[in-house]
Measured scan of single mutants.
Amino acid sequence: RADKQHVLDMLFSAFEKHQYYNLKDLVDITKQPVVYLKEILKEIGVQNVKGIHKNTWELKPEYR
């Protein structure tokens, strides 16, 4: 399990490339446990629960 700041850096870097990611792809990118990753994502992102981007994560507007 990596340092939180290191995980945040990896996530922000990923979100610079694409606006939406599913959790599986973010786990592959960060190599972090799902529960730990979700904890961090809830602080900086929102999970889309409907629409064409259903079940994906994106950054909260203040982090874009």
Rank of each mutant, 00 (worst) to 15 (best):
V27M: 13
Q5E: 11
K24W: 06
Y36S: 07
K24M: 09
K50Y: 07
V35E: 15
D9K: 15
E58Q: 09
G51T: 06
Q19N: 12
R64G: 08
T30R: 00
Q32R: 06
V35A: 14
E58R: 10
L41M: 09
E62P: 06
F12K: 11
G51A: 05
Y20M: 07
E16F: 04
E62A: 13
Q5C: 13
K42G: 13
Q32A: 09
I52R: 13
V49A: 15
P33V: 01
K38I: 14
T56K: 14
L11Y: 00
G51W: 05
V34H: 08
L23Y: 04
K4Y: 09
L8Q: 14
A14H: 10
S13E: 15
V49E: 12
M10W: 03
K42W: 06
K17D: 08
E43T: 09
D28G: 13
K50A: 13
Y36M: 09
H18S: 12
L37W: 00
K31W: 01
I52A: 15
L11P: 00
H53R: 13
K54F: 05
F15K: 01
T30A: 03
R64E: 08
V46Q: 15
L37C: 04
K38Y: 04
V35Q: 12
M10S: 07
Y21V: 12
N48V: 13
K17F: 04
Y21W: 12
K24Y: 10
N55E: 11
D3T: 12
H18I: 05
Y20T: 12
K4P: 03
A2H: 06
K60R: 12
S13K: 15
K17V: 07
I44D: 00
K42I: 08
Y20A: 10
L8K: 15
A14F: 11
F15Y: 13
K54A: 13
Q5P: 07
R1L: 13
P33Y: 00
N55C: 08
K31T: 05
I44L: 03
L59T: 01
H53P: 10
Q5I: 06
T30P: 00
Q32I: 08
Q5Y: 08
D3W: 05
R64S: 14
I44G: 02
F12N: 07
A14P: 00
H53M: 09
N48W: 04
K42S: 11
K42P: 08
H6T: 15
G51V: 03
